[in-house]
């Protein structure tokens, strides 16, 4: 099991790597002078085209980490390279182009209350493309149908269940065909069946659209179902990295306690897909 990613010279880091799409080195962040550091030197590589999970307890800085990937936060020290590009070095016009590489699915979906499902999903296309309304409608209806949301186009977010909101959030993230999908706690607040459906959706989306998935989670059952690679965060650093099997077999005390306490030894997706 890889405890920490190897050192990386800036010359190498700024090149596109065939295997590692996101490379993070020495990432540090605190929010106020004198406040404790949330990230205390993160070293991590995330694999292209796979489901990478960042696992950790509440308040460990997982969401802070993910916000550095798209330049929503700037690090105090260290670097994030996405295909060799460090978002902290980009100006506002460049960062806008850079963010189009990403789709982000938020914990509570973050759908715009005043827009319908269709308008929510069309939003990135309206903002960033010159497609006609007919083309936009066709793309949006395709994505919604692919995620089992046909018929929900005219509804407002307040009329949807938690699972449906997450799927609409995913459809919105997918319309610009991003290379990387970021999921922030995608199964929080869902019942076990809805959780399994969201897990299935993450796996199928990764396979169908060939995207790199980065999932932030503390739900062990879900993590073991979907992860190709798991990075365990603890106290602002990466405590362990490896496959699900490697994480289960780790001798790191914190990781072992986290896995044991969750009560999940093995997990997999079973049964037919159904709407959550």
């Amino acid at each position: 099991m890889n405890q920490s990613a190897p050192p990386l010279s800036p010359e190498v880091a700024t090149l596109r790597d065939e295997r590692w799409q996101l490379r993070i080195r020495g990432l540090r962040k605190r929010f106020a002078p004198g406040a404790p550091e949330v990230l205390r030197g993160i070293d991590l590589d995330l694999e292209r085209g796979r489901v990478n999970v960042v696992l950790g307890g509440s308040g460990q800085g997982k969401s802070v980490l993910i916000k550095h990937f798209i330049g929503l936060l700037r690090p105090d020290a260290g670097h994030v390279w996405v295909d060799g590009i460090d978002p902290a070095t980009l100006d506002s016009a460049e960062i806008a182009r850079f963010r189009r590489k990403f789709g982000m699915v938020f914990q509570m979906a973050a759908l715009f209350d005043s827009l319908t499902v269709e308008e929510n999903c069309a939003f990135p296309l309206v903002e960033h493309t010159k497609k006609s309304p007919v083309e936009i409608r066709s793309i949006v209806f395709d994505r919604l149908a692919a995620l089992g949301l046909s018929g929900a186009e005219g509804k407002y977010p307040g009329e949807l269940s938690g699972g449906m909101r997450k799927r609409v959030g995913l459809a919105r993230a997918l319309v610009l065909e991003p290379e990387i999908l970021l999921y922030d706690e995608p199964t929080t607040g869902l019942d076990p069946l809805a959780t399994e459906n969201v897990d299935r959706m993450i796996l199928e989306t990764g396979q169908r659209f060939g995207v790199t998935s980065v999932v932030i989670s503390h739900d062990m059952a879900s993590v073991f179902r979907i992860a190709d690679r798991i990075a365990m965060m603890h106290e602002g650093v990466i405590a362990a990295v490896g496959t699900a099997e490697e994480i289960r077999a780790t001798d790191n005390d914190y990781v072992r306690r986290f896995v044991t306490t969750s009560g999940v030894a093995h997990a997999g997706i079973a049964g037919p897909a159904g709407a959550p």
Binding site: K67, I70, L72, S92, I95, A96, R97, R99, R100, F102, M104, F106, Q107, M108, A110, L111, F112, D113, F123, P124, E127, H128
Partner: peptide, 18 residues
């Protein structure tokens, strides 16, 4: 304020909209 606490403002930024 509601948009801020429900991450809708973060979503705008993530979608490269100021």
């Amino acid at each position: 304020g509601t948009m801020r606490i429900t991450e809708q403002i973060d979503a705008l930024e993530a979608m490269a909209v100021s």
